[in-house]
Design a protein around this nucleic acid. Structure first.
Lengths: 205, 205
DNA sequence: GTCTATATAAGGATAGAC
DNA sequence: GTCTATCCTTATATAGAC
């Protein structure tokens, strides 16, 4: 166990604390609304010490996007071509809703980013994301052509799934203000609603 | 025509220019991301001159929310209890989609606000908005009880309508990046998609 | 009502001691 | 690696002349 590795245990711990704190702050306030001071405080470090690990606020944000993007897009690739079309898509809806419940900060991080013109992820949208979506949309279209899914434009179907599921994370204050109840009860209702809704809209015949 | 009225023509024109410029800037960058300089430039005034009309950045934002909120919530009250339930709700969906097309700045203004915890409109969410939604949700429930609408939780139905329609304004860069085409072609597709989608999910039997 | 100049504060980033 | 002190830029807001 030599020690010339690029990352010591303490460095790893600090980097993780910084990224976690940055996720808190960027997701709640957006890029410009976030301050390095707030991130440092959330991470339990002084500002200069934080800037010893990351060269700038931009660099923290970039690292955070890099660290979360894969997780965030993962469900899109988990749809099984050999499964039942309606159940596969409803399953995707439910997974996305669970992510809104379990990773609301990530949802808001990307919502803030896209809402303000996606200045830091233009390459992702123009590249990987479009490829992934086109791929799944083609699969949906195959299912439709085979009569196993009610005819509907697949890209817009994907948008509707993103919109309806991420809504519960991104606009949570509004949802909570209107519905009341607990986070758990709200997500249970949402799960029930979305399952029913998408089954009706997608079942052929 | 005496001149002791609180507002002259030139004041009115300047106030409107400021609010219009502020709508540009706040909707694109959020409250913290916006600067008074940018708003002044968008309004065609100097910064001190702008601050002659509004005491602070906060005051501009408040005035803007006040000036746009009524328009933004109007469609919610336009649903006709005596119409055909499915067509009334689909009509609401289409009106909301048209608002995403025609008032994208207002959509993003409120999206920014809610996404970041609605610090400036807590009273609206806890008050007027909840009342309006509860009222319409009760109407939907009546329709369901009468067997004229497929059974579905009405509050979540309203959320889904907001989410799916405002998505096209709030996340336009992403939608445009994935779909390509023109704004017109995208909205036509969306209209087609959402009409089909909600008719299927809401038609009873 | 509108401008130039400026006060004042916040925030990003660095210097240099330890 | 971590801290205190500080620099520098940006941004809100005001003063005061015209």
């Amino acid at each position: 166990m030599t020690d010339d590795k690029p990352e010591t245990r303490i460095q790893k711990k600090n980097r993780e604390a910084i990224l976690d704190g940055a996720l808190d702050v960027f997701s709640a306030q957006g890029f410009k609304g976030a301050t390095v001071d707030q991130i440092a405080e959330a991470a339990g470090l002084s500002k200069p010490n934080l800037l010893y690990y990351f060269a700038s606020k931009e660099a923290i944000h970039r690292a955070l996007i890099d660290a979360t993007l894969d997780d965030w897009l993962a469900p899109l690739t988990a749809i099984d071509r050999d499964g039942d079309p309606v159940e596969e898509i409803v399953g995707y809806v439910i997974r996305k809703l669970e992510m809104s419940r379990d990773m609301p900060r990530e949802s808001r991080l990307f919502a803030n980013e896209v809402l303000q013109g996606a200045p830091h992820i233009t390459d992702v949208i123009g590249g990987r994301l479009t490829e992934l979506v086109d791929l799944q949309a083609a699969l949906f279209q195959d299912w439709i052509d085979a009569g196993r899914l009610a005819p509907i434009e697949p890209h817009h179907l994907i948008f509707s799934i993103w919109a309806t599921t991420q809504h519960y994370a991104d606009f949570e204050v509004q949802v909570a203000g209107i519905l009341g109840g607990t986070p758990e009860s709200r997500f249970e209702e949402a799960q029930q609603f979305l399952g029913t809704f998408y089954r009706r809209a997608l079942t052929p015949g």
